[in-house]
Every structure is written in structure tokens, then in C-alpha cells.
């Protein structure tokens, strides 16, 4: 799939933002007044910038409000609702914390749950797609949630060891997801044979494409990553989103600035993760265009 900047920014920043809100809602750290203001501002900022970025992926963003209408079937619609609900609930919590010096734990918990549901909703937009075997798997929501939770923890959770533990788990989950994802396409029965219905007659091979030029499908859904590129990005991903934040948390004095820098580097790692998430995901439509088997992944 095309790793479009808008959706990378969207999923990365909103995920991290809601991850922060999750912890804030749970009372990590227990903050009020100006401190709370800054914490909530960062969380909100990330979430809102992320959500706004998603609009850049739209052909007609002026109609975006219509996206709230189909919550009955559409995960994208549900995600829209969930994010608005989360932002609303957390706005209440933030208001009370910043201006009233009050923390109502129940409200925070509701906000925390909604935050995670929002991230889950985001992940389900991808997970639901049977057409992209790599996404259509439990690991997708798990990894999305892990990024949100661990990412949020970098800034919020004390003792630092807890955040470190979460980062370690994140790293492990990400590695597992890559591993599972590598073979996800082959594990499915879908191949050019079933795509054309001709597989029972012999081996099927794409001969001539329907058009020599490019089109939306090829640009959007038949993206190919070079193996070396993918391997480099994975190192960058794990390095930035897991290893370096851990190093900061372990080695540097534990203060908000250090944690802020660790989070920033983590987010850079999330970008790499999401870039790979899209770029390595193969859509079955590629079969029709002769992308036979998914490119063997870099981890093998």
C-alpha cells in the first residue's frame, strides 16, 4: 500500500496522542493546573494534528462531517465518533484538572477507555480489510495499542521502569507482528489462480498489463519496497521507538525534558513503523497486476 504521509502522520500522532490521554485519564501522572495544561496540550496537540492530517488524505475534505454517519458498519465512521467522544470527555477532564484543580477519577477512566477504543478503532480500519492479509490479523490492533500505550508511557509513567517494560513489550510485539506479517499473504489461499479462477488449469502468470501507464490502483495499492530499504527502516524503527527511549529512560536523569526528547524520538520511530506498515502491506489486487507473491520480507 502507498505509504502516504497523511495517513502515516495521522495514525502515528493520533495514536501517540490518545496513548498519552489514556495515561492521563488513568492519573499518570496525577497533574493539575499548569502542569496539567502542558500535559493535556501535548496529548491534544498530537491527537488533533494527527486527525487533521487524515483530512489531507481525502479527495473532498469539505464533506468530512459526512464521515460520522455510517457508524453502523464503518470502522472509519466509528473511529471518527470515538475520537470525538474521547476528545470531548478528556476535554472535560482537562478543564477540571487545569482550571478547577479537580480530578474526577471516573471521568478519567472513561476517557482512558475511550482513548484506547479510539486507537483500536483506528487499527480496525486496517484490520478489517481482508484484501490486505498482513493487516487482517489480531496483531494489527495489538501493535497499534502497544504503540499508543508504550508511547504514552514514555512521557507519563513513573517509575520509568514501567515505561521501559512497556517499551520492551512493544518491541517484542512489533517483532512478532513483522514475523507473522512476512508470511501473511502466502498463508492465505488467495493467489493469481483464485483471482482469475484459472488456477486449476495450470500455473497462471500475468502477461500484459491492462494499461502501460500508471493508475490509481497501482499508485495506491501496488507499492513495492526494496528489501534493503525495509531492513534499514526496521532498524530505524526499533532503534528510535524502543531502544533509544529505553536508553534515555535508563541512563539520563529522569526529568520531563529527557522524557519529552525520548517521546519525540519515539514518535520518529513510529513514523518509520507506520511507513513500513503501509509500504509492506500487500493488497490482493496486486495479483491482477502480476505482483505474484509478496516480496520476501527483510526479516527472513
Amino acid at each position: 500500500m502507498n505509504p502516504a504521509a497523511s495517513i502515516i502522520v495521522f495514525t502515528s500522532l493520533s495514536g501517540t496522542g490518545f496513548g498519552l490521554m489514556f495515561w492521563l485519564g488513568l492519573g499518570f501522572p496525577h497533574v493539575t493546573g499548569w502542569t496539567a495544561f502542558w500535559y493535556f496540550t501535548v496529548a491534544y496537540g498530537l491527537a488533533v494534528v494527527g486527525l487533521t492530517a487524515s483530512a489531507f488524505h481525502l479527495g473532498n475534505p469539505q464533506r468530512a462531517l459526512k464521515a460520522f454517519t455510517q457508524y453502523r458498519t464503518s470502522w472509519l465512521s466509528r473511529e471518527a465518533w470515538l475520537s470525538v467522544m474521547t476528545l470531548t470527555v478528556m476535554a472535560g477532564a482537562a478543564y477540571l484538572a487545569v482550571f478547577e484543580d479537580t480530578v474526577i477519577p471516573a471521568l478519567g477512566w472513561v476517557g482512558a477507555v475511550l482513548s484506547l477504543l479510539t486507537v483500536f478503532g483506528t487499527s480496525m480500519i486496517y484490520t478489517q480489510l481482508k484484501t490486505v492479509p498482513r493487516w487482517n490479523h489480531w496483531s494489527t490492533p495489538v501493535v497499534f495499542l502497544a504503540y499508543a500505550i508504550a508511547g504514552g508511557a514514555i512521557l507519563t509513567v513513573t517509575p520509568a521502569h514501567l515505561a521501559i517494560a512497556l517499551l520492551v513489550i512493544l518491541g517484542a510485539l512489533q517483532a512478532i507482528a513483522w514475523n507473522i506479517g512476512a508470511e501473511a499473504f502466502q498463508r492465505r489461499p488467495t493467489d493469481l489462480g483464485t483471482a482469475t479462477g484459472l488456477g486449476t488449469r495450470g500455473s497462471v502468470r500475468a502477461f500484459e498489463p491492462p494499461h502501460t501507464g500508471t493508475n490509481y490502483l497501482l499508485k495506491e495499492m501496488v507499492y513495492q519496497v526494496a528489501r534493503r530499504r525495509a531492513a534499514q527502516l526496521r532498524q530505524l524503527n526499533i532503534g528510535l521507538s524502543v531502544v533509544i527511549p529505553i536508553a534515555f529512560l535508563l541512563l539520563a536523569p529522569d526529568n520531563i525534558w529527557v522524557r519529552g526528547i525520548a517521546l519525540a524520538l519515539h514518535v520518529a520511530g513510529v513514523f518509520a513503523s507506520r511507513w513500513l506498515f503501509f509500504a509492506e502491506a500487500e493488497h490482493v489486487v496486486g495479483l491482477y497486476y502480476g505482483r505474484r507473491e509478496p516480496q520476501a520480507s527483510a526479516s527472513r
Binding site: G202, E208, P210
Partner: peptide, 8 residues
């Protein structure tokens, strides 16, 4: 769109 395939 019209694709073309080979079956062996």
C-alpha cells in the same frame, strides 16, 4: 480494464 494472463 482488460488484463492478459498466461496459463501453462
Amino acid at each position: 480494464r482488460v488484463h492478459s494472463y498466461e496459463i501453462s
